[in-house]
């Protein structure tokens, strides 16, 4: 616990850590303000595809919808912000030479790497919760409340979630988003234990995320066959909480697969760190 506290103190003593929070706040504020100013245009585009078939009343462009929209748009950005800290947390100790001070202390390497990993998960959770809180708070302030309408264009489906159900669904979706992002954090963390500088793990993780996303979205049979083996296929499982009914089985499967990724990636990092010769 003491090691976890020290690690947390260290990462929150650095400006780099607040870059992510600052940029997320900036992106969300800008997006929501622009959406507020362009509300009519957005509503027109939203309704265009189904207004000839449906009559829709009420506050469609509400805070909940805006939150879901932003979550959907930031699935590349958030991993990048996570890697800024997760990709740096171990490698930075090697770069700055402090690893030599750290590893000659009585706590074992196993305890140190576990504390660092838990800190990475804590930061990841904090970042996603921050995104959720700022999206929802600002969204509700600027756009008000209402039922959540999700338009799954690729599946030709329109889902309506009554306002009373939305807060719980949001909570579940953000919990799932945290779970998804921990895999990105675990990957960056593993790279961080392998490298002796921060740039490699950050670029490496982003390269894997982007390549996997691209491969998973190619409309060819070969890539469709590959898709179940790419963790990015499962990281958007938080969207399933905005489905009707909620596909629990599919969600559970994704959560387990991502969990196994977390365990596997951490175990490799754990073994690498324990066996590593510190020559820097």
């Amino acid at each position: 616990m003491k090691l976890f506290w020290f690690e947390t103190y260290k990462i929150f003593s650095r400006w780099r850590t607040y870059i992510s929070f600052g940029f997320i706040a900036l992106i969300v504020i800008m997006t929501e303000v622009v959406m507020k100013l362009s509300a009519h245009e957005i509503l027109y585009r939203m309704m265009r595809s189904f207004q000839k078939d449906f009559l829709i009343f009420g506050n469609v462009l509400n805070g909940w919808f805006i939150t879901a929209f932003i979550m959907n748009s930031l699935h590349i950005h958030i991993p990048f912000f996570i890697t800024l800290v997760a990709g740096d947390i171990v490698s930075n100790e090697a770069t700055s030479g402090t690893v030599r001070l750290l590893l000659i202390r009585p706590p074992s390497r196993s305890k140190i790497i576990t504390a660092k990993y838990l800190t990475t998960l804590f930061y990841t959770t904090g970042l996603v919760i921050f995104l959720g809180l700022i999206c929802i708070t600002l969204g509700l302030l600027l756009f008000g409340k209402g039922d959540l309408i999700m338009n799954y264009q690729t599946k030709f489906r329109l889902v309506l979630i009554p306002e009373a159900e939305v807060p719980l669904r949001m909570l579940l979706a953000f919990t799932a988003a945290v779970w998804s992002m921990t895999v990105v954090a675990s990957l960056a963390f593993l790279f961080s234990t392998l490298a002796e500088n921060s740039i490699g793990p950050i670029i490496g993780t982003m390269a894997v995320v982007i390549v996997f996303l691209v491969l998973g979205n190619f409309p060819f049979d070969f890539f469709r066959m590959l898709s179940p083996y790419l963790f990015t296929t499962y990281t958007v499982f938080w969207q399933r909480f905005f489905d009707q009914p909620i596909p629990w089985q599919e969600i559970a499967k994704s959560a387990v697969i991502l969990g196994l990724h977390n365990i596997g990636l951490f175990l490799i990092a754990f073994i690498v760190f324990n066996r590593k010769d510190i020559t820097s």
């Binding site: 020290f6 650095r14 700055s96 402090t98 030599r100 001070l101 750290l102 202390r105």
Partner: peptide
């Protein structure tokens, strides 16, 4: 101290000692 003494540059001398000392 191995080679040169490296510390967390973004922390104060006091905080560095507190963190490193408390690990023992």
């Amino acid at each position: 101290i191995v080679e040169k003494a490296d510390f967390y540059l973004y922390l104060s001398a006091y905080k560095n000692l507190e963190i490193l000392g408390s690990m023992t």
